[in-house]
Design a protein around this nucleic acid. Structure first.
Lengths: 339, 339
DNA sequence: GTGAAAGCGCTAACAA
DNA sequence: TTGTTAGCGCTTTCAC
């Protein structure tokens, strides 16, 4: 592997000059530069970013901490879409992306900030971790610039991008109310997700506006998980036959509810209306197609990367970005009809 | 950021000793080691992998070159599943993954091997690039160990994992033949994918066994693309009404064909049988559920990572891994019925 | 069992 | 415009 030293020798100059020439500094004679460039090409030179990073004290890498990068996440490819968005922005910059997957056993050995510090990443994007994750706090308090997805923490070095979850949920429930539903249950994620808290508020907002009393027994957690949602939905439906609509905090859970309904011979949407959240790919393909609150996951990733890199480049940008959601009315919701 | 120098100072030893202690060498006094460990913890030390990599001349990173990491790839999340598999294996090793996305404009500026060399990756996994990619050859010829996915090149430092495409295709077509179909068309990908070449052979194999003459006009390319497949399928079906079954080299293309059939009021599977390839998530969700040849994309990634890391660790492993496919018979195929 | 010193490939004062 | 020198944080001979 050729180094600038080799080039210097062949070109008959010092390494400094080589370095300057290669990095496009102006204070180098054009003839010298050309010579150096030629030699570099001839020797098939590649700069060693490791050495450069070491001395410059920045690595031009950004760490992507994700937790949903596993086999089970295929159905709900939230993580993938965010990753695509991140990648889209990053690949047009001169940064590279290093992946820290935290679903493995390794996460217990090393904290997020350790991973970042060891690799000397310039910044990090964090997605899919729970608010009760013991290492979240730590990475936020380290002075590594980071952008969180769906976790509203804002400091000097920390920003976040999220969507308007409260409003999104409200739209969904409002839609059900307009269809005449009064007995609307909610299957939420879990308490350690800010989005769950927000979506619950949106649900309550909508009820309030319509003067419908909030019944806490009708809100249960399905852990953002299809099977768990099935279980809680089953119990909910069986013990509260008056429920005519269910708002789910994720599409995956909505799919679980649809399964249960099918099993119980409850027709959707005639007997039960369902609204999901996310607009995953499957939402428009299941039968009947799922009414849901769409969030642009790709854009979330894109904006996160943009925010982070802008911060790293010293551009003084807002540290918060909230995207809008979009209610997609499909075929799992219908006018209430009391049989 | 604390360095071993800081630790040495506080612990009252030399940097050499610190290095040895931290790296678990045996020739260091237990008391000294303990002291050093304590100081390291106290100072919240993180090793600088950049410096280490520089001197050791290996980075403990593996590069992942993919081309399908963009918004459009959501439906056909082949890339994502492979990535998950890679990640699964890698995250249980002490390597990290660095993502080189090549769909961007950047790919034209820097070749794959340049990317790899600059970042000093120890090895690379390459997925989703075409055999006519000008930079493929280059990276293969560089002496960077790499594992290719679905490109059968084998050298001292290059291996690959793939599935048995020929057999998979044969199974699919054989299935159609057993159902009584004689006029079976194929929508292939493109000529710069080895899998397309192989699947075509499998198609021909099946015909041959059944003594059905091969008609080259009935094999058209859809570029692994839903829209393109729609177009070619339309032409194919309209000008050859005798075709009763179509084998597609990807599920995405099969979806395109299904769309066309719907538009032409051709009932599936009654009037037209369709077999796809891949078994993407949607395959089992579309209506009717798609009969297809399943390949385990997650495992492909997993095996690729395993092969690469084993190679890097000097384990002498076979450089080729061929996985089996699995014909999933669902509801787009039916006994031929000449009306 | 420990330390001094060299060096990995690069950048950046400072001097000439 | 160019070169000398030091140093980024680490590992590794080699000597003690």
């Amino acid at each position: 592997m050729t180094t600038i030293k080799d080039i210097a020798k062949v070109a008959g100059v010092s390494v400094t000059t080589v370095s300057r020439a290669l990095n496009g500094y102006s204070d180098v004679n054009e003839a010298t530069r050309k010579k150096i460039m030629d030699v570099a090409k001839e020797l098939n030179y590649s700069p060693n970013t490791l050495a450069r990073s070491l001395v410059m004290n920045k690595s031009k890498t950004i760490g992507l901490l994700v937790s949903g990068l596993n086999e089970g996440a295929v159905k709900d490819n939230f993580t993938f879409e965010v990753l695509s968005g991140v990648n889209q922005y990053v690949s047009d910059s001169d940064y590279d992306l290093i992946l820290f997957s935290t679903n493995s056993t390794k996460q217990r050995e090393k904290t997020y900030s350790q991973l970042c510090k060891e690799r000397r990443v310039d910044g990090a994007i964090i997605q899919g971790i729970r608010t009760d994750d013991p290492y979240l706090q730590e990475v936020v308090e380290s002075n590594i610039p980071c952008v969180l997805i769906d976790i509203p923490i804002e400091t000097e070095t920390v920003g976040y991008v999220t969507t308007n979850n409260r409003q999104g949920a409200q739209k969904a429930v409002d839609h059900l109310i307009r269809l005449g539903h009064q007995n609307i249950a909610m299957i939420n994620g879990h308490e350690f997700a800010v989005v769950s808290q927000e979506r619950l508020k949106g649900y309550q907002d909508a009820l309030k506006v319509a003067n419908i009393e909030f019944n806490p027994d009708w809100v249960v957690n399905g852990d953002f998980n299809e099977e768990a949602a099935e279980k809680v939905a089953l119990k909910l439906i069986e013990s509260n036959p008056e429920i005519s609509a269910i708002f789910c905090a994720s599409d995956l859970m909505a799919l679980g509810v649809m399964k249960v309904a099918r099993r119980l011979n409850i027709r959707i949407p005639e007997q039960l209306s369902i609204v999901g959240y996310d607009d995953i790919l499957l939402a428009s393909y299941v039968s009947p197609p799922l009414t849901t609150v769409a969030q642009n996951k790709f854009q979330m990733g894109y904006e996160a990367a943009k925010m982070l890199i802008h911060t790293l480049e010293g551009k003084d940008e807002p540290h918060v970005k909230t995207l809008d959601t979009d209610l997609k009315i499909r075929e799992t919701t219908k006018k209430f009809n009391k049989n």
